[in-house]
């Protein structure tokens, strides 16, 4: 009896607050994580079998469909640029002065030896566009209370049929993300930490991304500087800017 009352109360509470149902949670996540424009400087730390490497880059993004990356270090990578416009990806290398377009099979390759493929990087749809969400519980991660959401693809061509997200209840930042195969097998896991407030948004400054089928420690992303909603000149997102 007691349990029933508590359940009712909890259910009532959830129902009463329109801001905390699953779909509005992921909408808030999308709103928080995706800005009109974004300029960042990031470090990618790749843990190889032999050594770990750090690759630094400056990234420009407009919405989810346009992005431009220029690698800053190490010396071998310096000046390499990557441009993504919707489904197309171009890479420019200063050493050969060539722009190469990647497609098909190549997009499934890992980026810079990381646990991310080009395709992973090119996924540009908002969560709300791809998934239906359902709240399945609450958990605490690193002292932060989170909603646990289960996402199921509502479109045919999602890379991952389902995902599990742990969303910070106050800041609407996903602190953990698990990506599953159609069969329900866990494929990839991302963990976010060091959440900071930047330009009125909460944003994770550290991420670890891991292909769980593969051995290894995964790939770390560290944001050293990030700005939201700043004006980015249109030429940045053109092929001409690659050779600049």
């Amino acid at each position: 009896m007691k349990i029933a009352i508590i359940t009712l109360l909890v259910l009532g509470f959830i129902h009463q607050d329109p801001g905390t149902d699953a779909s509005s949670i992921i909408k808030k996540v999308d709103d928080n994580m995706i800005s009109n424009t974004q300029i960042s400087i990031t470090k990618m730390i790749i843990h190889g079998r032999r050594n770990s490497r750090t690759v630094a880059s400056k990234n420009y993004a407009e919405g989810t469909e346009k992005s431009y990356t220029e690698y800053l270090s190490p010396a071998r990578e310096e000046g390499t640029k990557m441009l993504k416009l919707e489904d197309n990806l171009w890479i420019y290398s200063p050493s050969t002065d060539r722009t190469i377009q990647l497609s098909g099979h190549m997009l499934r390759q890992s980026v810079m030896g990381s646990d991310l493929s080009y395709e992973d990087m090119m996924e540009d749809r908002k969560l709300t566009e791809v998934y239906n969400a359902q709240k399945i519980g609450q958990e605490t991660i690193n002292g932060r209370k989170t909603w646990v959401l289960e996402l199921h693809a509502k479109v045919d061509d999602a890379s991952y049929e389902s995902q599990k997200l742990w969303i910070d209840q106050e800041r609407f930042v996903p602190l953990r993300q698990e990506m599953y195969a159609k069969s329900g097998k866990l494929l990839k896991r991302a963990e976010a930490s060091d959440v900071k407030r930047v330009d009125g948004r909460w944003y994770p400054m550290k991420m670890n991304y891991k292909d769980v089928l593969k051995e290894g420690k995964g790939t770390d992303f560290v944001i050293t500087d990030i700005q939201f909603d700043v004006k980015i000149p249109e030429y940045i997102f053109s092929k001409a800017s690659l050779k600049r």
Binding site: Y160, A181, K182
Partner: peptide, 14 residues
């Protein structure tokens, strides 16, 4: 363990 993609490119594994 095998991983493959279905006709739409969605990952599957079993």
């Amino acid at each position: 363990l095998m991983r493959w993609r279905d006709k739409n490119g969605t990952f599957d594994a079993a």
